[in-house]
């Protein structure tokens, strides 16, 4: 009984502290809008790398990216632990990833951290955190844009979700002005281990993750969503269209994998003098 009361008190104190922490760096939507507007075309004409978390990432020498602009997602912090690689821009979209890794996400240091605004009450922002107004219509059954890919050219207004966090990264890269985007670690194939617990679109792993660069990524006990790659592909097509309409280009520099919609380039050749 005393233990229960004690736990309740501790939880309340934690909640209050978290609220204070959240409030410390939390800005108004108007302020975030202004920050995002100030970032528009900041990197005009530059190239960048969108780093996926597929097993092929282990074949890439990430030291080559030291002086490049890089976008990292979800559990990229496992790579930071492993070899110190830290992306310039970091983003998470999936709620399972947020809830299962909330402490890591909160403490992860990056030059820019972007999150959909609907996580404002969960993620503790630091001075580099920017919340973006995200439109979740792609996921919501009955929504007029359910499963219809959309692409935002100005993310200070809104950013569209599209089945994969990389779709948001591509909109972000466009907004920031990058003219060449190279995808790496986008294996675009998933194996569903037999032991996985399946409840609708929600999966719970019972063993090491075979689909990512680290076995703990969606390791035992972690939850993930059906990746629905056909829907991701629809969104990639949309991104490709928008980039090319503006004279920009997305390349696939993944070593191996099954993503063939973008022109392929050899990763190592991008760094040859």
């Amino acid at each position: 009984m005393i233990n229960k009361i004690y736990k309740k008190i501790i939880n309340k104190i934690k909640e209050k502290r978290n609220k204070k922490k959240i409030q410390k760096y939390l800005k108004t939507p108007e302020e975030y809008k202004n920050i995002l507007q100030s970032l528009k075309n900041k990197y005009k004409g530059e190239r960048c790398f969108v780093v996926g978390n597929g097993p092929s990432l282990n074949k890439c020498d990430l030291k080559l990216l030291e002086n490049e602009f890089t976008f990292g997602v979800n559990g990229i912090f496992y790579k930071t632990d492993e070899n110190g690689f830290r992306p310039t821009f970091y983003m998470v979209e999936d709620n399972h990833v947020v809830y299962d890794n909330i402490d890591r996400i909160n403490s992860y240091k990056c030059q820019y951290k972007f999150f959909p605004a609907n996580y404002k009450n969960i993620i503790i922002p630091d001075k580099n955190t920017i919340f973006i107004p995200a439109d979740l219509g792609f996921y919501r059954e009955f929504h007029p844009y359910y499963c219809i890919p959309r692409f935002s050219k100005d993310i200070s207004k809104e950013i569209f979700t599209g089945q994969s966090v990389t779709i948001m990264h591509l909109q972000l890269a466009y907004h920031l002005g990058f003219s060449e985007v190279y995808l790496i670690g986008m294996d675009f194939s998933y194996a569903l281990p037999e032991s996985t617990k399946v409840e609708g679109c929600n999966y719970t792993s019972q063993e090491d993750d075979p689909n990512h660069f680290h076995p703990d990524y969606f390791g035992k006990g972690k939850k993930w969503h059906d990746p629905k790659l056909e829907r991701v592909l629809m969104n990639y097509e949309k991104c490709k269209e928008e980039f090319e309409a503006d004279g920009r280009k997305i390349y696939n520099a993944t070593i191996g994998g099954k993503l063939e919609i973008f022109d392929r380039v050899d990763y190592n050749s991008l760094f040859k003098k």
Partner: peptide, 19 residues
């Protein structure tokens, strides 16, 4: 301009961003 939707069965109201 799309404002949002009301789903009868779930009794769910979501805004133009599907929140």
């Amino acid at each position: 301009m799309y404002l949002g939707m009301l789903v009868f069965g779930k009794g769910e109201l979501s805004d133009f961003r599907a929140i």
